[in-house]
Amino acid sequence: MFTQSIITQFFNGFSVVAILIIAAVGLAIIFGVAGVINMAHGEFMMIGAYVAAVVDKLGGNTLLAIPVSFAVVGALGLLVERSIIRWIYHRPLETLLATWGVGIILQTIVKLIFGPELYYVGTPKFLAGGFRLIGRLPFPWYRLFLIIVAAALMALVFYVIFHTDLGLQVRAVRRNRAIASCLGIDTARVDMTIFVFGSGLAGVAGAVLAPIKSVSTTMGFPYAVDSYMVLVLGGVGNLWGVVAGASLIGEAETILSFVFNNVIGELLVFLFIVIVIRIVPKGIFGYYERR
């Protein structure tokens, strides 16, 4: 009985890992490449979720909401980058404060438009229900869908970074900005593209998480915190770090919460992160510059 439940928990853990990956991947490339500490990441996700709510109201479902959210939040990212971020690249403290402010502004704007109440987003009909895996509980189709979305997003990001010209430039800028610039790469344009791409991914995250979570103006912050934990643990600047960080946190949290309880589980995970960071300060897959 107990073993069976633990195995169920292990599969549940995959869905939590997927949620963490989905939430963190947009942040990972913005933080990892452009070096911007984007405190508005949670609010970008929130806007993605509200876009999904609007799409839902107009009769569309999550599959339609994904590209729409990507476009809307990507456009928003472009606006923020062009108007604010581009003036303060490479001044981490300023970007932190500025994006924090952007987050508050976005929350207020959304509240003015949609009102303060929670919003409803339904699960698409063909993803309702679940299939029997092991134990008493069915595994929900929507959770499987989240795992697929997480894998697809990672695949997309890997493809863009390792198999496109843009990706080549991104990697060059990441390695050595000055030399890349000397070689004729327009680093400002690379930064902008990455910021827009990362913002769009945050929008997708909001859209796919909306059906199983609650949609409100303040929903974003906890996701931003989770995402930063994933990055800090996994290591900034390496995409495998996102996978590693999310897997460790997600599985540890689900298993520990099951064995002990939610509060202790969360506490142990934090403790674990502190210890790991003490041993490898740059995270598990941290990128160490040559000195």
């Binding site: 069976q4 169920t8 928990q9 549940n12 939590v16 929670l118 979570k213 906890p222 919460s257 099951f258």
Partner: peptide, 30 residues
């Protein structure tokens, strides 16, 4: 906290026949 898959698994395997919830705010919805 808005992730309840663990709690739900516990509920299902606990043998209870009623859940008494005093979760609040966004948590209720999730």
């Amino acid at each position: 906290a808005t992730e309840f898959s663990t709690s739900i698994n516990k509920i299902a395997s606990s043998g209870c026949d009623v859940v008494f919830s005093d979760l609040v705010g966004d948590q209720i919805v999730a």
